Amino acid sequence: MECAMTASLEVESTLTDRYQTTVPETVRRALKLSKRDKIHYTIRPGGEVVLSRVEAAEEEDPVLGQFLGFLARDIASHPERLQAVDANFVQRIQSLVGGVEVDLDTALPADDE
């Protein structure tokens, strides 16, 4: 019977005066963390703390939710501001973006985040 041995890697970081720290690069890579990702902490009875990446549900987008809430409130408060979209305007938009392909699943380059 073969026994698989798992290697562990230890890293450390320092707390600032405000109790903040930078997650070391090796931990970020291991958890596949990106900017603005959430981290879950599990505190075990012996004092050991386990970090894991929080998987965000696709429907949870706080910025989009706030924007849609703003639009709903604005429409309710000022329905007179609503305007029909003119067919010429639609044609103009299509002429500007026609043939442009966008892959919404492709990650942005680091400079664009």
Rank of each mutant, 00 (worst) to 15 (best):
P45L: 06
R53E: 09
G46M: 06
V90I: 15
V90H: 03
D17A: 11
R18C: 09
S95K: 03
K38A: 05
L71Y: 08
L104G: 08
R81S: 08
R18V: 10
V23M: 07
A30K: 03
P62I: 08
T42R: 04
R36G: 00
Y19N: 09
E80C: 07
E55G: 05
I93G: 03
L64I: 10
T6L: 04
S95V: 00
V102M: 05
R29H: 11
C3R: 11
I43T: 04
K38Y: 05
G99P: 06
L71R: 10
D37I: 04
R73I: 06
V11D: 12
L68C: 03
S95F: 00
T14V: 15
N88W: 00
E10T: 15
I43K: 02
E59S: 13
K35F: 11
Q91T: 03
L9V: 15
A107C: 13
V97R: 02
L15D: 13
V102L: 12
T16E: 06
E58P: 09
Q94D: 06
G46R: 06
Q94N: 06
A4C: 08
R92T: 10
D37R: 05
T16F: 02
P62R: 11
A56N: 02
H78A: 07
L82C: 10
N88Q: 04
C3K: 14
G99I: 07
S77G: 06
L108Q: 12
A72N: 10
I93Y: 04
I75M: 12
G69A: 14
T16D: 14
V97G: 01
T42P: 00
D61Q: 08
R36I: 01
D112V: 10
S34W: 02
V11N: 08
I43Q: 03
V90E: 02
E101S: 07
R81G: 08
E60P: 01
A87S: 15
L15E: 11
L96D: 07
I43G: 01
L71I: 15
P24S: 05
G46H: 09
K35T: 13
M1K: 02
K38R: 12
